[in-house]
């Protein structure tokens, strides 16, 4: 089997969110550990778009930040083309991998330094990795990148505040492409944008993927966007993966009760009059997650085993991975829910 571009094994990241030492002593409070990501596994082959979807607090953004090295993992490993990222300790060792692994952020109003000109923002990775020498050569490359994201080279002269949200996100993409990466981590890249602009950005991302052979890790809470852009989808809940499956299979035949619930919340834009189950309950606090399967308090099919024993992902014949005792025992219905025909 060909080595995937990215392999994540048993990845975990805990945050210490304890109150200050004095409060702990005086008020008798204990330490509090937030398990933002608690043992996730996935691989992404070259050229694929792999999406992670979930509600706020499920840990999807933490996974994105772990992959690009903004956080150090508490446990587990991330390997890029077979190289374990944890084994690279110095800045010089990391540079060649960092060049190939870039990120696009959610908020186009915060992701560009307001005091820098656009040309300098886009040139920063080129200069940092020493890819091109010479002022004019760098400017030419910046102009080329701006054209690649459908902006004009003269836009490099301006400051970020002179652009709309969609244009800023294009600048952000141009910066990410500046170091000629193979792999882009996209953390909710369109959720701050209006729908018509979202369509422009999604189209651009698909075009770039085709032209440059990019691989995407795409983080989103919007199921329709995920359906549109992904090859495979992972559903996260409270720091764990509930279900991982090829997009068509996940949407046509969701297995995990949480996936089924999540898909049921998609608005019925076609106005087919699809009947939906009202969703009960809210996401519990990740500081004090439920025992066993974290979803059991909201799950209509939960039994004693779900309350005590944590389910591990199990592969199904059609390529889906599902972490659910109910699915394993066959007591959860797994018919289509009418979203995708066929």
């Amino acid at each position: 089997m060909v080595e995937p571009l990215l392999r994540v094994a048993d990845l975990a990241r805990y945050f210490d969110v304890s109150p200050p030492w004095l409060n702990r002593v005086l008020e008798g409070q204990g330490r509090a550990i937030l398990k933002a990501v608690d043992g996730v596994n996935f691989t992404i082959p070259k050229g694929e778009t792999f999406s992670i979807v979930g509600e706020s607090g499920c840990g999807k953004s933490t996974v994105a930040r772990l992959v690009v090295g903004l956080y150090r993992p508490t446990r587990g490993s991330i390997s890029f083309e077979g190289h374990d990222l944890a084994s690279l300790t110095t800045r010089a060792q990391m540079a060649p991998l960092r060049r190939r692994l870039q990120m696009i952020f959610q908020d186009p109003f915060a992701s560009l330094n307001p005091r820098w000109r656009v040309a300098d923002i886009i040139a920063e990775p080129i200069r940092a990795f020493g890819l091109i020498e010479g002022r004019q050569a760098i400017l030419d490359r910046v102009g080329q990148l701006l054209r690649q994201v459908k902006l004009a080279p003269v836009d490099g002269e301006k400051y970020p505040h002179e652009f709309s949200g969609g244009q800023r996100q294009r600048i952000s993409i141009a910066r990410a492409l500046a170091s000629q990466p193979d792999f882009l981590v996209c953390d909710e890249p369109t959720s701050a944008l209006d729908v018509s602009v979202q369509a422009q950005i999604l189209n651009l991302m698909k075009d770039l993927q085709r032209q440059l052979g990019l691989t995407y890790l795409f983080i989103s809470h919007n199921l329709a966007v995920v359906y549109h852009i992904s090859d495979r989808v992972a559903v996260m809940y409270l720091g764990r993966m509930a279900e991982v499956a090829p997009t068509k299979i996940l949407f046509r035949r969701p297995r995990h009760p949480y996936t089924r619930m999540l898909l049921d919340t998609i608005p019925d834009l076609a106005m087919t009059g699809r009947q939906r189950q009202p969703v009960a309950g809210e996401v519990p606090s990740p500081i004090d997650p439920p025992t066993g399967c974290a979803f059991h308090p909201r799950c209509p099919h939960a039994n004693d085993r779900c309350r005590s024993e944590r389910p591990e992902p199990r592969a199904l014949p059609d390529g889906a991975l599902v972490a659910c005792h109910g699915v394993e025992e066959g007591r959860v219905p797994d018919g289509p829910i009418g979203l995708v025909q066929g």
């Binding site: 903004l70 990391m94 960092r98 990120m103 952020f105 959610q106 560009l112 330094n113 940092a128």
Partner: peptide, 24 residues
């Protein structure tokens, strides 16, 4: 996020402080 973007590129922390954070 612009500071995080600089960290993803691998800019030295001292440079981030002086060139990104300080002017803002």
């Amino acid at each position: 996020e612009y500071v995080q973007a600089a960290r993803v590129i691998g800019i030295h922390p001292a440079m981030i402080m002086v060139r990104h954070v300080l002017p803002n």
